Computed example of a mutant assay.
Amino acid sequence: MKLHEYQAKQVFAEAGIPTPGSTLATSVDEVVEAASDLGYPVAVKAQVHVGGRGKAGGIKLVENDDEAREAAEAILGMDLKGYTVDRVLVEEAVDFTNELYVGVTMDRGEGKPVVMVSEKGGVNIEEVAEEDPEAIAREHVDPAFGLHPFQARKVVYDAGIPREVAGDVASILTTLYDLFEDRDGSDVEINPLMVTADDEVIAADAVMNIDEDALFRQPELAEMEDEAAEDDLEAKANEYGFDYVRLDGNVGIIGNGAGLVMTTLDLVDYYGGKPANFLDIGGGAKAERVANALDMVFSDENVDSVVFNIFGGITRGDEVAKGINAALEQFDEIPKRVVVRLAGTNAEEGREILNDELVTVEETLEGAVQRAVEYADTEAEQ
Rank of each mutant, 00 (worst) to 15 (best):
M106E: 11
M106L: 15
D107M: 07
D107G: 10
D107Q: 05
D107A: 07
R108W: 13
G109D: 13
G109N: 15
E110N: 14
G111R: 08
K112P: 00
K112L: 11
K112F: 03
P113R: 08
V114Y: 06
V114W: 00
V114Q: 05
V115G: 00
V115F: 02
M116H: 04
M116K: 04
V117T: 08
V117R: 01
V117H: 01
V117K: 02
S118Q: 03
S118V: 10
S118P: 02
S118H: 06
E119L: 13
E119T: 14
K120N: 10
K120H: 09
G121C: 06
G121S: 12
G121T: 09
G121D: 01
G122H: 05
G122Y: 05
G122T: 01
G122D: 02
G122S: 07
V123Q: 05
V123Y: 02
N124T: 05
I125M: 07
E126M: 06
E126K: 09
E126D: 14
E127N: 12
E127M: 11
E127F: 05
E127H: 10
V128G: 06
A129N: 08
A129G: 07
A129S: 15
A129L: 08
A129F: 08
E130G: 03
E130Y: 03
E130C: 02
E131G: 11
E131T: 11
D132E: 15
D132S: 12
P133K: 11
P133T: 11
P133W: 13
P133D: 13
E134Q: 11
E134L: 10
I136S: 10
I136W: 12
A137T: 07
A137H: 04
A137C: 07
A137D: 04
A137M: 07
A137Q: 09
R138I: 06
R138K: 15
E139G: 00
E139Y: 03
E139N: 06
E139C: 05
H140N: 12
H140W: 15
H140P: 04
H140G: 03
H140I: 04
V141P: 02
V141F: 07
D142N: 15
P143Y: 09
A144D: 11
A144I: 09
A144F: 13
A144G: 09
A144W: 03
A144C: 05
F145K: 13
F145C: 03
G146L: 06
G146N: 05
G146M: 09
L147I: 03
L147N: 00
H148P: 00
H148A: 14
H148T: 08
H148F: 13
P149N: 10
P149D: 03
P149T: 12
F150I: 12
F150E: 15
F150P: 00
Q151H: 13
Q151E: 14
Q151S: 14
A152P: 03
R153W: 05
R153H: 10
R153D: 13
K154T: 12
K154D: 13
V155Q: 00
V155R: 01
V156C: 03
Y157L: 13
Y157E: 15
Y157W: 12
Y157N: 13
D158V: 09
D158C: 04
